[in-house]
Design a protein around this nucleic acid. Sequence first.
DNA 1: AGTCGCCTGGTA
DNA 2: TACCAGGCGACT
Length: 272
Amino acid sequence: MPELPEVETIRLSLLPGLLGKQITGGEVLLPKLIQELSPEEFLAGVSKREITALKRRGKYLILELDQKWALIVHLRMTGQLVLENTEAAMVKATYLKLQLNEGYDLRYRDQRKFGRIWLFEASRLTDFFAKLGPEPLEDDFTVAVWEKRLQKRQLAIKKLLLNQEIIAGLGNIYADEALFLAGILPERPANQLTELDVKNLYTSIRQVLQEGIEHRGTSKKDYLDGTGQPGSYQEKLRVYGRKNLPCVACGEPILKVNLGGRGTHYCGKCQH
DNA sequence: AGTCGCCTGGTA
DNA sequence: TACCAGGCGACT
């Protein structure tokens, strides 16, 4: 489900309700959701701790507890993290409930049960994210860094965009959108991109992610932010989910193919 | 490098 | 009934 803009929107929407709150208790209703620990160990580890920061790395959400522990959430395809009144009825597919002081729960829902949650000491974060690629919106992600990452790679550029070790945070929607904006065919081998292609792609990646955040994410099916609100970027998508609809630039029908097992949308006339 | 499994639900 | 879905890791 959520890519970088959705996870960032969830982070921003949860920030006011979570910062400084204490986790008073909780309930795990799907043991396999919790990685490396038993549900009991996990609940004991988060209980009585204060949420001291909320961060994001790629598509991972990081709750810092007591400035010492890291509670990591990866939503995979259909995960949702929402703040709800403790009295509110438990919605279907809610698999984790963390009770906070002041009457609210942080609840995790996940239709397809693909999500993952970890709890460990914050000192392990560097190791945990060691293989993850650069943050595309950070200042240290430069064209030069991007160029270097694509060097000598003969894989289709779309596949590289989806590889989180190459660049963090892009998923199927924003990868297709970035390639369209840059005018590059998804099948192009990365090492055949010109210097200008690489530069355009760099700019396009940052643009679509920025736009996604500004529109509070893309709600195609399940995605909601931490307050239960959908995003609106689905209305702005240029190619994703627009098979057979006219290209916004040239009017030709948008094509959809399968690339590496993922639906891939593009304009056969605008992208080369 | 490519395919399969993990899960459930919506749609063709 | 079959296929598809915003992700990712374990297989061959």
